[in-house]
Amino acid sequence: MALMSEELTFSVMRTGELAESAWELTSRRKGARAVLGLAGPPGAGKSTLAQALVEGLRRRHGPLAAAYVPLDGFHLSNAQLERLGLVSRKGSPPTFDVRGYAALLRRLVAEGDHDIYVPDFDRTLDEPVAARHVVRPGTALVVTEGNYLACELPGWSEAREAMDELWYVEADREEIRRRLLERQLAAGRTPGEAREWVWANDLPNAEVVEASRDAPWVKRAFHWSGHD
């Protein structure tokens, strides 16, 4: 499926407006499953928005309207990060199984007659977990999100091939820093450890993502208001 290349617009968007635009993708697919991707830096609110879109569409159009598929389920395990020497770079592009993620998206488009199980990342365990989500037969729209979906890096273009549209979720840098610090503190790091991790790892990752904001395959870029 080719991503549309209309003029990029920047704005503050509400959940209801975004849900309407997302639902329009299903009519273009004429009964086949559509896929919407949400890219953006860590801490921008992608996962919260994706789940809000899914919940809102299910309320409006029924339980098979939409399903949530997070890239974070394709984090490499801590054991694999240790093997590769990437523990200190967890969350950077090479610490994801991007080809596995792309393969799942292809299955979601091609296979619509049985349950397809979807992994997620458990922040308490600090590990990926299998089959936390399921995409049921007849599901009309998949909403998937991840930092690097718009990046021109090995493997990510293959993932984009399964998407009908790709949106970019922005947030103010200070807000991103605050959310990332809160995330690391909630994971059990001390304030000093949290600051060091965010400055040495999370913010450099955010810079990689921000460089993809104006990519030609990004349909729209916006700040999410967090409201309906």
Rank of each mutant, 00 (worst) to 15 (best):
A103M: 05
P137I: 02
T124L: 14
R177I: 03
C151H: 04
T124S: 14
P191C: 10
P216L: 06
G138I: 09
D202H: 07
D113M: 09
G100V: 11
V134H: 15
K219E: 08
P128K: 05
L181S: 00
V143Y: 09
L153P: 06
R183S: 09
A215D: 09
D164W: 12
V198A: 01
R220F: 05
W197A: 14
N147Y: 01
V142T: 12
E175A: 04
A110N: 14
R123M: 06
V198I: 04
E174M: 10
D202Q: 04
L203Q: 02
E152H: 08
A159I: 05
L166D: 01
A211E: 11
E161A: 15
V129N: 12
V134Q: 15
W217P: 00
T144S: 15
A215H: 06
L153S: 01
W199I: 06
A187N: 10
W199G: 07
D113L: 07
W199K: 03
S212H: 05
V118T: 15
M163I: 04
F121L: 11
R195Q: 09
G100Q: 07
A131M: 14
L104G: 06
A171V: 10
T144E: 10
W217L: 00
E170D: 10
R132S: 14
L108M: 07
A215Y: 03
R99S: 12
E111A: 14
A186L: 14
A211M: 08
S212A: 11
L166M: 09
A171M: 09
H133P: 13
S212L: 02
I176L: 06
E152S: 11
D113G: 11
